[in-house]
Amino acid sequence: MLKWLSPIILSALLAGCEDPNWHTSDISDIMPDLDLSLVDENGEQVEEDAYTGKTTLLYFGYTHCPDVCPTSLARMTAAIKKLDESARDDIQVLFVSVDPERDTPARLRQYTDVFGPQFIGLTGNTEQLDELTNRYRVSYGYGDKDANGNYDVSHSSGIFVFNAQGDARLLMRNSDPIPSMVSDLKRLMARG
């Protein structure tokens, strides 16, 4: 009796810990608020206050990534397109390049324009990038250069989502279906 009851009790306990209405992962209690010091796609030094007032998605990548990064950004584009038209101005995506050697501000602007007006390219020096990635407990790294000088960059694949006040709220993974992302973004934008 106890044997088959325990999974039910366990799931009930877990349900109590995790808000069952979020489809993606709630990180409110485990991740710090938005705090950054970087260079934006116009070459300006920026801090987090430039991005408060809107729901913010934070993603780390690089423009020489033809597969994972564009696919992840395309998912965000698709999710944003599912929001009411008026809500699309209240959300922004910060694409932070961890490859500042190749990703100039001009190149980042050209890149983010493909995905929509909500996308903003950012990068920084090693110190600034390390501070930001350490803050969200992610990492990045560079592969060896090949004969043509190309190299691969490893980067985190999740999307950190902050409310309009800059509080960390959700982590969206590549495995989360787009309707789950849309539902959570709507809920977050409605309640903060």
Binding site: V68, D146, D152, S154, H155, S156, G158
Partner: peptide, 19 residues
């Protein structure tokens, strides 16, 4: 100029790509 076969991988929340 250059075309290569690549594979992307995702492990422990990290994405990487290699030839």
């Amino acid at each position: 100029e250059n075309t290569e076969i690549h594979m992307s991988m995702e492990k422990d929340g990290m994405a990487s790509m290699h030839a």
